Computed example of a mutant assay.
Amino acid sequence: MGNFIKKQMLHDGESGISYIGRFDFSDPDGIVFGWSCSTIVAMFDGTEVSAKFQSFGPNYFTVILDDKIIMNSLDVSKDGVFVLAVNLIKGIHEIKMIKRNEFNVGYVKFLGFDFGDGELLSAPKRLERRIEIIGDSITCGYGNEGQNESVDYAPSLDNGYLSYGAIAGRSLGAETIIIGCSGFGIMQSYVGDISQTVPSRYSMIVPEKDVRWDFTKWIPQVVVINLGTNDFSFGHIPDVDKFNKAYIRFIEEIHSYYKNSKVICTVGPLMDGEALIVIKKCINNVILQHFYDKELDFVSFLEFEPQNKEQNGCGVGGHPSIKTHKIMAEKLQSKIRKMMNW
């Protein structure tokens, strides 16, 4: 081990490594990324593989070898070389690493793979179907590996790989990226901070570094928005006029980057009562209608049913359990399959 070849640091597709998500290639020493479910994939011919990381905060990965999870939660929080697999059957293998946690918990610098006496092969073929999931803690899989709402939060309990969007994407055979952050909303955070919104971070590769993304690099056919839970936090009804205008501006921004993409505005599964009634009216009667009035039909609505804690359990702080994420994924993939004829 120890042969971390510099050529592996080149841009996506030039190095034999595929980078699915938003990655910053400007640092010659390594590739920086932060969003949940950012994925690194490589094909190699050999019997072993390790990876080298520099970590900025707690960071965890799901590691998959030849379509089988071999490490559910690899902790790379301490900088160094991490042995992923040894004593493999000699031949061609695929290694995949998926970042489980959010950028506000930590971001990472990838410093390369080492295949021992083996060699890196051509990058795996990319999927043609692409889905972008935009949201908050629900979308990022916050605390979904916690056993109940009373469990103390720890970043190791976040699993973006088992979030509803990621599950749906895999079922649909689509590359799926997540752009989201716990506590963030459309116009404010759950405590009313207007600086902590997803639209304010949406154009960034690594939000903590304020590095801007080139939207021409990866264009999804479907964009899913699940925001508003934090704007309506604790059942509080915000200024709905401001909410509607902020939501419309965000959809218009997305549409400016992805002219031919479908946008699904979703609600749930943590909202209830008057807040749920009001946000559904906002989306259906004002926000979507704004586009329909202009004869634009790229937007639609989907509601996730409120979670059933008694039947399906819940994660940290009452967030959806993995079982609930799977239920949400089934509903989302059904809508996308029908809408896109996938």
Rank of each mutant, 00 (worst) to 15 (best):
S137M: 04
T197G: 07
P155R: 03
S77D: 03
L74M: 11
E310Y: 06
S137E: 06
N59D: 14
I89F: 04
T216Y: 07
D79C: 03
M204L: 15
I179A: 12
G2M: 01
E274G: 06
V223T: 11
K281T: 07
M97L: 15
I336F: 02
G34H: 01
A166C: 13
F243H: 08
P28M: 05
V223M: 07
K245W: 03
D293L: 11
R337T: 04
G16C: 02
G169S: 04
Y161P: 15
L332S: 06
A166G: 05
Q221T: 06
F4P: 13
E119A: 00
S18A: 09
A123L: 03
H325V: 00
S195T: 06
I237D: 14
W342F: 15
S261E: 09
I95A: 05
F33P: 15
K68Y: 01
A246G: 15
E149K: 15
V286I: 10
F82K: 14
Q54A: 10
F291W: 01
F56I: 02
E128K: 14
V86A: 14
V32H: 08
S77E: 04
Y258L: 09
V222C: 12
I17P: 15
I205S: 13
G228L: 03
V267Q: 10
F232M: 08
F115R: 08
A168H: 06
I17E: 04
N244D: 12
P58A: 04
E94C: 10
R126L: 09
Y247P: 15
T197L: 05
S261K: 06
G192E: 00
I186D: 09
G57P: 07
N72G: 11
L111Q: 14
G313W: 00
G57V: 00
V105Y: 01
N312R: 11
Q307V: 05
D293T: 02
Q188Y: 01
Q188A: 05
D67N: 14
I89T: 11
S73Q: 11
E252M: 10
L288W: 00
N230D: 04
G16N: 08
K125H: 05
D272L: 06
F215V: 05
T229F: 00
T266H: 11
Q333L: 07
L172D: 08
I20F: 05
E145W: 02
R170S: 08
A166R: 08
Y292L: 10
Q188T: 01
D117C: 03
N59A: 10
Y153N: 10
L65Q: 07
F53T: 09
K52E: 02
E175C: 05
G46M: 03
D293M: 09
I70N: 08
Q54N: 14
G80S: 08
K209C: 09
N148H: 03
L270C: 11
I64Q: 09
L276F: 01
I31Q: 08
M187V: 03
I20Y: 00
K294L: 13
D152N: 12
S38C: 12
S233C: 12
G192F: 00
G30A: 04
Y258M: 09
Y257W: 13
Q289W: 02
I92D: 15
A42Y: 00
L270K: 14
N244A: 12
T266L: 05
V191W: 03
G160M: 05
I89A: 14
Q188C: 05
L84I: 11
G30P: 13
G313E: 07
M71V: 04
G112N: 07
V63C: 13
